[in-house]
Nucleic acid binder design. Structure first.
Length: 443
RNA sequence: GGCCCUAUCGUCUAACGGUUAGGACGCCGGCUUUUCAAGCCGUUAAUCCGGGUUCGAUUCCCGGUAGGGUCACCA
């Protein structure tokens, strides 16, 4: 029983997007599920377009997603081997040096072409079943620009064989490349790996995800404050499912349950909204300490931040959003708000003037009697009877005291409830803000 | 256009040839300690079309349609 070997073979000619990494995820999960090896091979045969920073970005993204390679190669390391096999093919007359008329800048006057035997080539795709291609219309395709510059189709076949790759798991956009690669394989007498062509990931306009059309680089999701386990979870579920109703699987569960026979044939659309909800799930699963460690928050008071984490978990879908909240709608927890008299009175019943002011004064007494450090529940317990009493007086009564209180504490039209606010702010700060509000109301 | 692939709610998807076609996300609605958020409850919503095969097709076969991929001296 031979061990499974899969590979992820990106070319460092740009920043890779989620669709690219989705193939890495499947190749990794399949290999690890089977106890096999996962290889990363940087396909840098296009010297002109390959850039070190792109290669660096690939390693960064893979490390962040925690898809560690068992072996890492760079295709350009295999030049000598490629050259030798190219020479062999030419000696065989399976390939030949062809004189060309350059059509585009950079074109050579001489390239190496493969002598196409014609006929049909079939292979059994692990996901799609038998696929047959008439290779006749491929013509004598180019396999190298020169002895030292093999083209993708040639290099990929040689490297996969040399590295012992058993399963070529890649995007469905490679289906039509497979036949010619098999032709090269046969000419070279190499073993034929199994092919698994994954359904493509489409953008909202139903086109293949592409940087050109605005797809984000994977590392942008990291920078937005998406958790790697969330992205992994989401990516794994694009074109695959475990066969039951679970939606949130950890990396360990994914490895354990991944089953390539459950991979979808049809393409899937990348939905950022769903990704956000998956991310929120994993953010909520974090402990307070882990949440803070991941968040990269800049706040004056970490102790207070600990109390705010539950609010952040409730509201934010990404850590970026959480950071924005701390300096935006939740900034009142760190800074003394400026109050507006009109807003303080916004919910005052027209037939009962002074309700806001009287209410705040009543609440003030209750709060003053509280210990400094109380839970939101405890605060609520003390305050609600007063709000309820107001409610009994007429319509909107509860809100008539609760709104001014909440506004006095937050200075915002939208904020967490007043009980939570008080529990985070502490009794003394709460009292000071309420007094200020009473003063504004003419106390 | 040639060749290839694909086809279940808006999206991701489930369903030994027999189900009221299920779940999730979103949307919409309701509830709550009447801001926002969250939570809870609920609603809406799909088997592309046409032929077969079969007692019975989402499921198997054929055809069409639609969508996508690919046709580089890029990978």
């Amino acid at each position: 029983m031979s061990t499974v070997v899969t590979r992820f073979a990106p070319s460092p000619t740009g920043l890779l997007h989620a669709g690219n990494y989705r193939t890495a995820v499947f190749a990794y999960l399949f290999a690890k599920h089977s106890g096999g090896k996962f290889i990363v091979r940087i396909e840098d045969t296009d010297v002109a377009r390959s850039k070190p920073e792109y290669e660096e970005n690939i390693h960064e993204a893979l490390a962040w997603l925690r898809l560690p390679a068992d072996e890492t190669y760079r295709q350009s390391e295999h030049r000598a081997r490629h050259r030798a096999l190219l020479e062999k093919l030419i000696a065989d007359d399976t390939a030949y040096v062809s004189k060309e008329t350059p059509q585009a800048p950079g074109d050579r006057e001489e390239v190496i072409r493969f002598r196409n035997p014609g006929g049909t080539v079939s292979f059994t795709d692990v996901i799609r079943g038998e696929i047959t291609t008439d290779v006749g219309d491929l013509g004598d395709f180019i396999i190298a620009r020169s002895l030292d510059e093999p083209v993708f189709h040639f290099a990929v076949v040689v490297d996969d064989a040399d590295e012992g790759v058993t399963h070529v798991i890649r995007g469905g956009d490679h289906i039509s490349n497979t036949a010619r690669q098999i032709l090269i394989q046969r000419a070279l007498g190499l073993a034929e790996p199994l092919y698994a062509h994954l359904p493509l990931i489409l953008d909202s306009s139903h086109k293949k995800l592409s940087k050109r059309a605005g797809a984000k680089a994977l590392t942008e999701y990291r920078d937005l404050g998406i958790l790697p386990e969330a992205l992994l979870n989401y990516l794994a579920f694009l074109g695959w499912n475990p066969g039951d109703d679970r939606e949130y699987l950890s990396r360990e569960e994914l490895v354990k349950d991944f089953d390539i026979s459950r991979v979808q044939k049809g393409s899937a659309i990348f939905d950022e909204v769903k990704l956000l909800s998956v991310n929120q799930h994993w953010m909520r699963a974090l402990s307070v300490e882990d949440f803070i460690a991941h968040g990269d928050f800049v706040v004056p008071d970490v102790e207070k931040l600990r109390k705010i984490v539950p609010l952040l978990k409730e509201r934010a879908h990404t850590f970026g959003e959480a950071r924005e909240m701390l300096s935006g709608e939740l900034s009142c927890l760190f800074e003394i708000p400026t109050l507006d008299r009109e807003k303080l009175l916004a919910k005052e019943p027209s037939d009962r003037p002074e309700t806001a002011k009287n209410g705040l004064e009543g609440l003030l007494k209750l709060i003053e009697a509280l210990p400094d450090n109380v839970s939101a529940e405890a605060v609520k317990e003390v305050i609600m009877p007063l709000a309820d009493a107001e409610e009994a007086k007429g319509k909107g009564g509860r809100g008539a005291v609760l709104w001014p209180l909440r506004y006095a504490l937050s200075g915002a039209e939208r904020s967490p409830d007043p009980f939570t606010l008080l529990s985070i702010l502490g009794r003394d700060e709460g009292i000071s803000r309420i007094r200020k509000a009473i003063a504004i109301l003419g106390g």
